[in-house]
Write a protein that binds this DNA or RNA. Sequence first.
DNA 1: TTGACAGGCTAATGCCGTTAGCCTCAGGAT
DNA 2: ATCCTGAGGCTAACGGCATTAGCCTGTCAA
Lengths: 183, 183
Amino acid sequence: MSPGRADEVAVAARRVLERSGRDGLTMRAVADELGIQAPSLYKHVAGKPAIEVALIAAGLTEMGERLWAAVDRPGRRAPVAAVLAAYRGYARAHPNLYRLASAGPLPRADLPAGLEDWAGEPFLAVTGDAHRAQALWAFAHGMVVLELDGRFPPGSALARTWAEGAAAFAAPPARVPAGQVRR
Amino acid sequence: MSPGRADEVAVAARRVLERSGRDGLTMRAVADELGIQAPSLYKHVAGKPAIEVALIAAGLTEMGERLWAAVDRPGRRAPVAAVLAAYRGYARAHPNLYRLASAGPLPRADLPAGLEDWAGEPFLAVTGDAHRAQALWAFAHGMVVLELDGRFPPGSALARTWAEGAAAFAAPPARVPAGQVRR
DNA sequence: TTGACAGGCTAATGCCGTTAGCCTCAGGAT
DNA sequence: ATCCTGAGGCTAACGGCATTAGCCTGTCAA
């Protein structure tokens, strides 16, 4: 189980994932990509979940980089809109990787420490409030997932929808009356 | 392939899904629930996808009912908050069904005509604008998915986050400058 | 020269959805 | 009364999945 070859497996797995989607990401396909038989993969990697964790970590890292870049250089956009655009852009550039990294429970224990927080911090940087940041993230994630899966009615003007969300979260944080918070 | 028995299969499948999750929803498990062998299911349903479509339709229908009820009787809440609460409530009551109904592409061709639109209309009723409605829906969906999958950092005060989103979308629709819409 | 080990391989297990083909039994037609 | 047909079970089997066990070969250090 040399670490070097494990990386090569991850690289091959990523190619397979981006080309064939989550269902196409099979141990046999990855082995094929390397010109090897599936059982031989287990000389380098613990199993399929370990491969997925490596891909999830890569996805989180790349997304974090894009988001931080948007925070640092928002261009002509408002900061919230810049982060949303970066989020959408990365997800559309790597839809299958995004889906893998964002679907189902996070294998937190196996991820590099701090990665998750670091990748999410841009939302905090741009909203200034933890709850507002989570809400903005939820909006972005919801938009991306629905867009990637084609769940919006065909012909929807999604740029308008994204702009609507950006506007809703760009306004100064509303004071939420304590009585409205139930649990 | 009598239609009556097909319903019984769907009912059994729903029990299996709610109990064992999406991965546990196998033809063998459904057959077991009915006390028969897996191949016998094919006397009643075309295959696993057909069962899933039936469950998706059920989930959309029930969600639509809850949302419309919230629109009609928002109680003491603001309409937007009432619809969000209904959305969250149904998803948490039936997490596995919600996930099945909302993950991946919609098999639109096989769903009862109009069901999708009808189930989504409450968001329109409560926002008064199509794009804003989609944005609100995306927020709700993102929140639910992240919440169900435990993606928020442990200990997050999610009621606060939901309230933040409700507040952001309760404010009057912002005029989005046309220049900000890119595509 | 020998021995260990990295890194391939095949065979096989148990699960999955699905197909083919057989059997039984109820009920209507002859 | 007999026959036949169709509904609705059944078992056996296929190919694909992740994974395990066990074998073999080539390289390199002692």
